[in-house]
Design a protein around this nucleic acid. Structure first.
Lengths: 199, 199
DNA sequence: GCTCCGTCATACCACCGGTATGTGACGGGG
DNA sequence: CCCCGTCACATACCGGTGGTATGACGGAGC
């Protein structure tokens, strides 16, 4: 039988991560104090340091939470047994939408590399969104849909292009129009690669 | 006649910015204390707060210094009266090389958006590297070299692609090979757009 | 020569991340 | 059913950091 203590433990841990996630999203990593986080979770720093080794570890827990949810969305978007090209386009739409989420944008794209260090951030991304972008690009190359380019670099560049596009949307005065522009432009880039493959 | 005192003033200010630039590059913004900066500049915090309103203002001064040097390099690379296409390719090469500079990568690409806030960073970039990318893209569209795509978004996406490519190079085990891959891939993207324009 | 202002040094404060230690509740063994 | 060890926290505290208030020093101008 599941102990009562385990319930409490998991609950406090989740409350800490939730509180951290919200505050990191709103005020950023440096702008969020541990006191604010534990107050939001209605616990004290003792609890925080019992569950996490420090502020950075808590950030990574929030990071993992965001990325896991993101990966679910993206995986659903590119799933199915249709042609690789169609699924890639669906993935682009889904990723652009994802990058409009404040949590994903701030925690994963902006603060992630700075807080965790770029190398560690890169390793984490391998298991999450970037991993999916990479495998999608690999599928496109495999299917002969796009040019034979270096996989790793091509995926990185596409990933950066998508992120930059999402930031352009978020920072735009007319997000709707910007979102349409971004999708159109990314598709144009992919189409350019496609024609090159065909020719 | 220029007063000796003015020399001293400018010298201390420059020493502060130089010290900050070096330390921010090596240990990042959060990892650099004002004490370390003023020690490196052989002054005290009194001098720092006389010349700058705070740590963030000092960061922006270092940011401006890096970006000004970067803009000089890029401007020289894309200068000349050759065809827009050739000049754009030269710009790509120059920008990839630029992103390999630790200062540019860390201060402008990584920490800039986080420390200054994305909106302010974006405004600053308008006057520097991104502004040049944007005008280069505009020139390509103007010359009919590439597809007619939304200028702002296309420039943003290309900028992001270049930055991501540069990061891939810096984080690679074989930077030389990665640099070649990045240049090749970016050129492939542009070429794809070019064929689209022709077709 | 006296004053004023720019230029910095010194001393200090509030706050934050992190640690050391105390304590009460839960759950298993007798 | 009670007792006690241990887990899950709370409390109190520390060093360091960004920022501020204040004063000293020295050249410029009258």
């Amino acid at each position: 039988m599941r102990s009562r203590r385990v319930d409490y433990t998991e609950s406090t841990r989740a409350a800490l991560v939730d509180s951290a996630l919200e505050l990191f999203t709103r005020r950023g990593y440096a702008g969020t104090s541990l006191d604010a986080i534990v107050t939001g979770a209605r616990v004290t720093k003792g609890a925080l340091y019992h569950h996490f080794s420090g502020k950075q570890a808590l950030f990574e827990a929030a990071f993992d939470l965001v990325e896991t949810a993101a990966l679910d969305r993206l995986t659903a978007a590119v799933a199915g047994d249709g042609p690789a090209w169609e699924r890639a386009l669906a993935g682009v739409e889904a990723y652009v939408g994802l990058c409009l989420e404040p949590s994903y944008q701030r925690i994963v794209i902006h603060e992630g590399p700075v807080v965790m260090g770029w190398e560690r951030w890169r390793q984490a991304e391998e298991r999450f969104s970037y991993g999916l972008v990479r495998s999608t690009v690999a599928a496109l190359i495999e299917a002969g849909e796009i040019e034979r380019l270096p996989l790793e670099v091509t995926a990185r560049i596409l990933f950066g292009a998508l992120s930059a596009g999402a930031e352009a949307i978020a920072g735009s005065a007319d997000p709707k129009a910007a979102a349409a522009d971004v999708t159109k432009t990314i598709v144009a880039v992919l189409t350019g690669m496609r024609r090159a493959a065909a020719g």
